[in-house]
Computed example of a mutant assay.
Amino acid sequence: MSEIETKKRQYSAPALSKGLDILELMAGQFEGLSLRQISDLLGRQKSELFRMLVVLEERGYINVLPDSDKYIISMKLFGLAHQLPDIKRITAIAEPLMREFSNRSEQSCHLVVERSSEGVVIMQKDSPSDQRFGIRIGAKVPLQNTCSGHVLLAFADENSREVMMDGIPASKHLPENVLADICDRVKAQGFENVESQQIAGVKDIGFPIFNYSGNVVAALVVPYLSHLDNTNAMDFDSVKVVLGDIAQRMSEQLGYNENK
């Protein structure tokens, strides 16, 4: 056994590992899990898990669903992640600009960042219109077949793009020539403009958000809804222009200077 492996064994924390196992399991279970289900899925005794669940509930990391014996993960971890300086700054700058966009265009918009080779929605602004479409904050979206994913991949530097793609299961990879064509097209036009592959009738528009170093840090996306009664406050092309302006202002407030 190597010295590193020996130290890992010396400093293991079984209780902490158990708690993390529970949180990681529950992160993908939107309908909740009972103690028995958690026990079966983790292969652990109910007695050793029960106390962990009590503590996690007391600390606000999980909740018990009303009139149920099922536990569900809370938004506390998401809230803690939002306290990271970069995310906190991005959302603070984005909030008034996204609100301005939604009020002007009467379209919803959301902000997506890349984490562990997935897109994560960190902010959402609903349209003031009665007819609207939105996406849940904290939702994860694939990079390879979404508007936000195309933007994040296209404007990433080559090394970052390789790291993103390495984290995607090989079975879900796009052929290299297809990915290259998408990235070249999106980067050349400065935005993505594509029919949603998740929701019929929605056309997505996405622009990159850059930081002071010129690195892409987020994608600002509108799932454009075209009203059949022609009551849209703005047509598609007008929304694209306004969204591009909002994205540019957001980047500038993050310190980006395209002339540097």
Results as ranks from 00 to 15, higher is better:
Leu23Tyr: 10
Leu77Ser: 15
Val186Phe: 08
Asp130Gly: 03
Phe78His: 09
Leu228Pro: 11
Asn159Thr: 06
His82Asn: 05
Gln197Phe: 10
Leu65Gln: 05
Lys140Asp: 00
His82Ala: 11
Val186Pro: 13
Asp235His: 12
Gly201Thr: 15
Ala27Gly: 08
Ser74Ala: 09
Gln198Met: 13
Arg99Cys: 02
Glu57Gln: 15
Lys70Cys: 07
Ile137Ser: 02
Gly119Pro: 09
Val64Glu: 08
Gln29Phe: 00
Glu176Trp: 06
Arg99Phe: 03
Ile135Trp: 05
Asn145Val: 13
Ile199Gly: 01
Ile182His: 10
Arg51Glu: 07
Ser129Ala: 06
Ser196Glu: 01
Gln189Lys: 08
Gly119Lys: 10
Val242Tyr: 12
Glu195Phe: 02
Pro66His: 02
Val55Phe: 14
Gly19Phe: 05
Ser213Pro: 00
Phe155Tyr: 13
Leu65Cys: 10
Tyr212Met: 04
Thr231Leu: 15
Asp157Gly: 07
Ala247Tyr: 02
Met1His: 02
Ala15Met: 12
Leu56Glu: 09
Arg59Gln: 11
Ser108Asp: 03
Gln144Pro: 13
Gln197Asp: 03
Asp204Pro: 11
Gly149Ala: 05
Asn177Ala: 09
Gly190Trp: 13
Gln107Asn: 11
Asp126Phe: 09
Lys172Arg: 00
Leu49Tyr: 04
Ser68Ala: 02
Gly244His: 00
Val202Ser: 03
Ala27Leu: 08
Val55Trp: 11
His82Ile: 07
His150Gln: 15
Asp245Val: 09
Leu179Pro: 12
Gln107Gly: 13
Val112Met: 05
Gly244Ile: 02
Glu252Met: 05
Val216Ile: 14
Gly138Gln: 03
Gly28Asn: 07
Ser116Asn: 01
Arg115His: 04
Glu118Cys: 12
Arg36Asp: 00
Asn159Asp: 05
Lys240Gly: 04
Tyr61Ile: 01
Lys70Trp: 04
Lys88Trp: 03
Ser12Trp: 09
Glu95Leu: 00
Val55Ile: 15
Glu100Cys: 13
Ile205Lys: 11
His110Lys: 13
Ser34Lys: 03
Arg9Phe: 05
Gly28Cys: 06
Leu49Met: 03
Val217His: 10
Val54Trp: 03
His82Gly: 13
Asn257Gly: 07
Tyr61Arg: 08
Leu97Asp: 01
Ser17Pro: 00
Phe210His: 15
Asn177Leu: 01
Thr146Trp: 09
Leu152Tyr: 00
Ile205Arg: 13
Ile209Leu: 14
Lys46Gly: 07
Ser226Gly: 04
Ala218Leu: 01
Lys187Asp: 07
Asp157Thr: 00
Asp126Pro: 01
Leu41Asp: 12
Ala233Arg: 10
Ala15Phe: 13
Lys8Arg: 14
Glu3Tyr: 11
Asp67Thr: 14
Val202Gln: 02
Lys187Tyr: 07
Gln107Lys: 12
Leu80Ala: 06
Met250Asp: 00
Pro223Ser: 13
Gly214Arg: 07
Asn145Gln: 12
Gln144Phe: 14
Ile199Glu: 11
Ser238Phe: 00
Val178Pro: 04
Ile246Arg: 06
His227Gly: 00
Arg249Asp: 04
Gly149Tyr: 08
Asp184Ala: 15
Ser148Ile: 02
Glu24Leu: 11
